[in-house]
């Protein structure tokens, strides 16, 4: 049986996968795309993509949403939530089976490392690889915050895990974003609180988003400093005065270290966030192994979707040579 490229994604709201697939069609590269939604059609485990069929796996997404709604006969908010969590765990259990049935080295990114990526671990690993990272702590009391504010004039607080979107009863949505703590708003901080990640606030000249692809860094500088709305987090888009996004080349030694860090994590692709301070120093912030790269590809004219398609093709040809 000939081995093929397997793309794991979702059926909706995944423009990046669609774009790469269109390049694959155009370049006449055969592939199999399996969306999480497709698993609701399977009859038995044998319908899952098999190891022998698969030469390389590009794992983008699990699923967008379950194709049907599942609810309890007796409506109850708390149990409804528990059920929702349970179904997600059930689905993930099935989906993650592929992580074990398909040989680990065939995955562009090690799927188990990717699914369990830990921000604190990545920062520690980055420091081990000689990367400069902002001072980071996890604290539980205002007293410690006060002490830290003597060391750095401003701190930011952000989740150890991922940002969430909160909805109110009226359907209003609230994005969780990075917030600043300084002496000016210290009174809002309670005496004791849930373990929280705080980081020294870097006064940035600009931000950098790097898409790492198999040894090459494709970087973009994001200038937002004179734009008050985006001072802390460029995801607070300002449509009237959008951030200026231009191609950027990181220093060679920094690229080398980033490459070593990615290798240590078992990743051949991923988005890396960095910041440049007013003195021009680089600070490594985090890695999003499944980060969107359309937002780097288009403004910098990098054709990353085409490069991903070509890399998948190269990987499958390489596999064929081995077997």
């Amino acid at each position: 049986m000939s081995q093929q490229i397997l793309i794991l994604s979702q059926s909706h709201l995944e423009g990046t996968t669609d774009h790469v697939c269109q390049w694959m069609n155009h370049l006449q590269i055969p592939y199999l795309r399996v969306n999480g939604e497709d698993l609701f059609q399977m009859q038995h485990l044998g319908d899952l993509p098999s190891n022998s069929q698969t030469g390389v796996v590009w794992y983008r997404r699990k699923i967008s949403s379950f194709p049907a709604k599942y609810s309890l006969k007796q409506d109850d908010f708390a149990t409804q939530y528990t059920l929702k969590r349970f179904l997600i765990d059930e689905f993930n259990g099935l989906h993650a089976f592929l992580f074990y049935t398909i040989d680990r080295q065939k995955w562009m990114n090690d799927p188990i490392s990717e699914d369990n990526l830990n921000k604190l671990h990545v920062l520690a690993l980055a420091r081990q690889h000689g990367l400069n990272t902002p001072f980071t702590e996890v604290v539980t009391t205002k007293a410690v915050i006060i002490r830290l504010l003597e060391r750095c004039p401003e701190l930011i607080v952000k989740p150890v895990s991922e940002c969430i979107l909160v909805e109110d009863a009226a359907g209003g949505q609230y994005k969780m974003l990075t917030k600043t703590i300084s002496k000016a708003n210290l009174q809002q901080v309670p005496e004791k609180f849930f373990p929280s990640l705080v980081q020294e606030k870097i006064i940035k000249k600009f931000e950098i988003r790097t898409f790492y692809l198999d040894g090459t860094c494709h970087s973009m500088a994001i200038f937002s400093q004179d734009n008050r709305n985006t001072k802390e987090d460029f995801r607070n888009y300002d449509n009237k005065r959008p951030n200026r996004t231009v191609p950027y080349k990181l220093p060679d030694d920094l690229e080398l270290k980033l490459g070593q860090l990615m290798k240590a994590l078992g990743f051949r692709t991923g988005s890396i966030d960095l910041m440049v301070d007013l003195q021009g120093n680089y600070h490594f912030l985090e890695i999003n192994p499944e980060g969107q790269f359309g937002m780097v590809s288009y403004p910098c004219n990098y054709y990353l979707e085409k490069k991903v398609a070509q890399l998948l093709n190269k990987s499958i040809l390489h596999e064929k040579e081995i077997y």
Partner: peptide, 25 residues
């Protein structure tokens, strides 16, 4: 907002690659 002043011409700011391609014939 076509550019900005700095104490140097930032070496990392590389020229734009002007190549063109599309995934459809």
């Amino acid at each position: 907002e076509l550019g900005f002043k700095d104490h140097q011409l930032l070496p990392g700011l590389t020229p734009l690659d002007l190549s063109w391609d599309r995934y459809s014939r």
